[in-house]
Amino acid sequence: MRPLSIIFRRELGAYLSSPLGYIIAAAALLTTGILFQWEGLGGEPKLSSDVLTQFFYVASGVTMCAAILLSMRLVAEERQEGTLVLLSTSPASDLAIVLGKFLSAFALLAGMLALTLYMPLLIFVNGKVAVAEIAAGYLGLFLLGGAVLAIGLFASALARLQIVALLVGGLITAVLVLIYHLAGIVDPPLSTVFEKLALYHLHFHGFMTGLIELESVVYYAAVIYFFLLLATKTLEAKRWQ
């Protein structure tokens, strides 16, 4: 537990002491704000719940992009700079390294998402939504963000360069999102498999409308677990190569 918390603090410090974390967070907040104004608050009058749904729709896309950008450096940068050896020859296990890094990026992402909270609260100026509905949406954003962070971390563990990590992470995420559309052109049971595997549509939709479905929670937890496990095994495998 101790190495995990040491790595977590070091990584969080690295985000906060470099411009990268701030730039990504600022860009994400700006983009979310502009898109929310455009899609949610602007145009013809809408129901409050529709505005909230629009917010989570916008925020989910931005969250996925931010997660990929935040995660690309986690291992690839260490490999690029030659500092990974410091961790790999320390008593910290590969799992502690992966979890420490994941949690630090997740903490930053969570902080960034917390700063968007004023946007759904704006709905209360001229409308009314249930606080539980907002909470459910944010739970979905945390889970979706965590899943994409885990994918990005896995890509970062694979890659030697950050740009490669960005591309691989982006590609895996895009495939997992777009696989939903394949469901429409193939026959069952493959279509059902694609629908259930898809990262976004089926599983995030419930959260957007204030619904917490156990199946979706388990799905995102499984994605996080799976890709963190892959990242851990990738680090382990690199020692044998």
């Binding site: 101790r2 040491i6 690295a14 700079e81 500092t83 050896v85 320390s90 008593p91 910290a92």
Partner: peptide, 27 residues
């Protein structure tokens, strides 16, 4: 204790902070 060919240093840390980090990491 291992010093690889290229010292594994975090350039964003001060020397003292870096050594404290390494010390904690190594138990």
């Amino acid at each position: 204790g291992f010093l690889p060919e290229h010292p594994p240093l975090y350039s964003d840390m001060t020397v003292a902070d870096y050594l404290r980090f390494v010390g904690r990491l190594r138990g």
